[in-house]
Design a protein around this nucleic acid. Sequence first.
RNA 1: GGAGAUGUGGCAGAGUGGUCGAUUGCGGUAGUCUUGAAAACUACUGUACUGCAAGGUACCGGGGGUUCGAAUCCCUCCAUCUCCGCCA
Length: 423
Amino acid sequence: MLQTTYIREHRDLILERYKKRNFDGEEIINQIIKLDDDRKSTQQALDAQLAEGNKLAKEIGQLFKEGKQQEAIAAKEQTKTLKESGVLLKEEQNKIAEELKGLLYQLPNVPNEIVPPGKSEDDNETIFEEGDIPVLHENAIPHWELAKKYNLIDFELGVKITGAGFPIYRGKGARLQRALINFFLDQATENGYEEVIPPLMVNEASAYGTGQLPDKEGQMYYMPEDNLYMIPTAEVPITNIYRDVILKENDFPIKNTGYTPCFRREAGSYGSDVRGLNRLHQFDKVEIIQIQHPDKSYETLDNMVEHVKGLLNKLELPYRVLKLCGGDLGFTAALTFDLEVYSTAQEKWLEVSSVSNFETFQANRLKCRYKDTGGKMQLVHTLNGSALALPRIMAALLENNQTEAGIKIPKALVAYTGFDIIN
RNA sequence: GGAGAUGUGGCAGAGUGGUCGAUUGCGGUAGUCUUGAAAACUACUGUACUGCAAGGUACCGGGGGUUCGAAUCCCUCCAUCUCCGCCA
């Protein structure tokens, strides 16, 4: 959520940047500014009334103390009309505040200057590529067939237990999955991230804090009985650690990592995109998040991308880094880099990580601030990234490393799997 | 799940209807003193909105209510603690 004062001061810049998203915010922003004016004037009127009421109340108290009953009762009469108009003003005030909030929730984050304009993922910029696409033997098959052939993942059994999109990993498949999780966590820890194991369900306040609510209810599983949401990503519980927190300048940067399963309803998804591991309702992911000083957050964003690149290098997977265009940029992000690995048997790129700087957009909702050297409260910048999302990594590993003799495990993982080939 | 108790500023802990945004102690910041440090002393020390400013308003777990006036009374939700039940 953008701050009202920021909107007032940077109206034109915001509107200009919104063009990168193909988002026309002019009307909303004009309304916001107008409503904010209303808010101020109503507040002033209300404050004046309350001040008058407070003054009278004090006088009445004084009169009672002095035993001047008559005068006190007379003064009480005065407060009546004051109270009535006060109630009206209060209602007005609430209504305005509500509307204002509703509008503020509709404004996406302001894209960074370097975000390329564009309509869809086709307009994303490839800024880096690494690794050669392997040439597979002629009997090469996609990962869902490999999973079956080597008894690594049972999709049908998952359907029986729960439903589509909840696979069961077994044997070396389960072991490989666990190996990846541990590998990713160890790598993050080596890079200075503190590991946390957060709750897998969050309350409403947390879902609002990172921007899942309002609007994205449909993406999350919800337990009405307890008013809790299953997390769609570890970003939600981990970033919310810093909700309502005031940091010191020397606390920066805060670095956390965490492994969690992620739950997504993915309503409306269909087709070849959901085949095998490509899109699931439950999947594993290791997330990295940082809370950073606004002056350093872009440097940090680069560091995080480098970290993820390092993981892919060690896994020896061919990958590319994309700078997302405005049209593909998430609602809450100011700048995002996606990392995609090449799935050789499917002959397509699969997104395995998304690394974003949210600047103050989340911090404003989270009320995560720090005192600057001048003693003023400032919002922090929040960042996060997948490092990494497991299923598509698994898919690419299985497909790209298949040989007539079996599936080879990259060297970096062997210490974690305990085997170097699946056959 | 049942019964009871509690929820105040960074922490501890006063405050049971009126001048309380809140006594006090600790902590923190600045200063005096000192060669330096400690100690002692002095001052300052919550957040947000609003105003050029002086100031005003709101906030004592959240929400609502009673009252001229609420941290203080009532309702409700949440959290914590104790006891009982259940249980990985």
